[in-house]
Design a protein around this nucleic acid. Structure first.
Lengths: 366, 366
DNA sequence: CTGAAAGCGCTTACAG
DNA sequence: CTGAAAGCGCTTACAG
């Protein structure tokens, strides 16, 4: 056994000289649990107990080992651990989000949440229309022994997939507009609240002919945004007239098309709340093509606060979700749920949208 | 040894019934190399040779084993393999790209290139101003035993980092505007060519007072785009007058600022080539604020073909890089270089930008 | 509270 | 061309 004979490839060190060995030595051969055990004069198992926080170790022993571990910057080998535990330190982001800024922000947030842990982020974009989607996801979860997965809308709303993940024992966190699961598996974004804010803003400006462009039914956020918008309007004793409720697809083109139809009405609306910024920008285009102006002829409010919101003119009033924060919380929740020693659970698992008032919504023309 | 006694957790199967066992059985206990070896009546080592394409196996034996492997959908355990080989199947994307669409596209391309392989994509955004950047990257490469890394501009231009990666034996592929390395480690994007196209387009429209907004010096692409632009202009016997050469930072704000200064000149330019779309859109804003119009008063050409290029009005004429393709080729190059059996090397490792003519550049006013 | 043995699923020399 | 043994670096029962 390797434990019995000295390995010439590794640094020779007796128990006495632990102090001199450290990061200062620069690139050195990686230490293993066996090295640490030798230095501490204990068995590998005891070191394993300490690095896994398993409790049943005498305080004095634990501290001595921890000190050696820290001095040498020892980190357990991720693959060896994964092999023995049948579980890797890989977390996958499973997403079908079309918005690039959303993707970058959520990835950045997850990475922030993982900082200082051995977990790594693997990405898995997906297509809900693929017939093998569920199988593909389960395969990679099992084959790579994923620690867990984080799901964004709309794939996060797929209860059948979640059922499969449960079946194979894969931990997960779902990001969605409303609670779809037990709290420890959810990040709620309350799109409803942001949409209600948008409604209050538009109503308080004095608009009465108010339109909404709805997102696709396959996104729960689309329904939530409409619901919140209606509630906000109701507070002002208003509602969306049927002819002002349009069905879009969260795309620029669909927004432009709905905008055109709205402007072609005998009595067009004076304000429109688009389900997302992409559609809102499409409405800008329709307004321009009709020879009209924003916000003079039509006030527009979006949802997302995409980069384009501040590039377009006039700047778009929109609803912002703290996406980076959502990613961070999702990572913290997933890790703290299943590796209690690695980190504290996040303080909150629910997040609130906020209205960003810019220049695309104003009082209607007298 | 486990090899000698039957494991009750695994499906019992004699050599005879290999045919009946397959994917059709649905969720089943994962097969190991030992199971395959037993079914084939050979040693684990022989199976290992077959799945690693090591050649030294009799054809008949190899085929028999391959058949069993395929029938059962056997895939070697990635962590066990990584432990034994001291190398994982993880590939990291190391990037400091600020453009979200670039990130999403390059990730998508890399994933496409990896499809069907056991490799997984891990993401590592980075900040070149971090003093521990190189150490951080080397640490994760070594600790996770990364198979290799793919680097985008501008981190791909960091020769010191590349030196460190070489030192620790980490395979890499660099994506950059020009060749900075041996061909097998490079994806060249030839930004130069796209910029020259932009110049020809502007010159052929009849402009003579032509400006350029340069990107930051820390991006090689900035210099290459200027170089190409000058060459294209020279073909028409033109050049950029000193007062028309502005220094931007690849940001919207810097583009707007440079645009303002350009328009404030006694004799302003009639056309401007911005180093990227973000800055081009900033120029739109400056034009609008000056009460002028694009392209009537100022023609604008960008670089990147960002989503905003078709959302803004008039639509932006710009240069497009095939980013998805670049990602795919980078993955194929990296994998084929260091795992010859896994895939063919890509046909080309160099890619060409192309001009996308839209509506933001027209003939100057008479 | 602590340890020796066996095992996770693969590969690398070394023989033959 | 093929195999038995040892090893990669960790953890899990099982003892004590």
């Amino acid at each position: 056994m390797a434990d019995d004979k000295p390995d010439p490839a590794k640094p020779e060190m007796s128990r006495g000289d632990t102090v001199s060995a450290g990061a200062a030595n620069g690139r050195r051969v990686k230490l293993t649990i066996t090295d640490i055990a030798k230095m501490a004069g204990v068995s590998k198992k005891t070191v394993s107990r300490v690095i896994n926080h398993s409790g049943l170790v005498r305080d004095e022993t634990r501290e001595r080992i921890m000190k050696i571990v820290e001095e040498h910057g020892y980190q357990p080998d991720p693959q060896a651990r994964a092999l023995a535990l049948r579980r890797s330190t890989l977390i996958a982001l499973i997403s079908n989000q079309p918005n690039p800024q959303y993707i970058v922000d959520i990835q950045g947030g997850i990475l922030t949440g993982m900082a200082g842990t051995p977990y790594q982020l693997v990405i898995r974009p997906c297509d809900r229309s693929s017939p093998t989607l569920h199988d593909d996801i389960c395969d990679i979860v099992q084959h790579q022994k994923l620690f867990g997965v984080i799901l964004t809308p709309s794939i996060s709303e797929d209860d059948e997939l979640i059922g499969r993940l449960r079946q194979i024992g894969c931990p997960y966190v779902r990001i969605a507009a409303v609670s779809l699961d037990t709290p420890e598996n959810m990040i709620e974004t309350h799109d409803y609240v942001g949409a209600a804010e948008a409604a209050r803003h538009i109503a308080s400006l004095g608009h009465t002919r108010i339109a909404h462009i709805h997102g696709p039914d396959t996104f729960l956020s689309a329904a939530e945004r409409l619901r919140g918008f209606r509630v906000g309007l109701a507070e002002y004793g208003m509602k969306i007239e049927p002819q002002y409720l349009m069905k879009g697809g969260y795309t620029f083109e669909s927004g432009m098309e709905c905008g055109k139809q709205l402007l072609a009405l005998d009595v067009p609306p004076t304000a429109v709340f688009a389900g997302n910024d992409e559609m809102a920008v499409g409405v800008y285009q329709a307004v321009r093509q009709a020879g009209l102006r924003v916000p003079d002829d039509l006030s527009i409010v979006g949802f997302d606060d995409s980069p384009i919101a501040t590039r377009i003119w006039p700047k778009l009033t929109t609803v912002r979700l703290p996406i980076v924060q959502m990613g961070r919380i999702a990572a913290e929740l997933l890790i703290s749920n299943h590796d209690r020693m690695a980190m504290q659970p996040p303080a909150a698992t629910s997040v609130m949208p906020s209205l960003v008032v810019r220049e695309s919504a104003a009082a209607p023309r007298a």
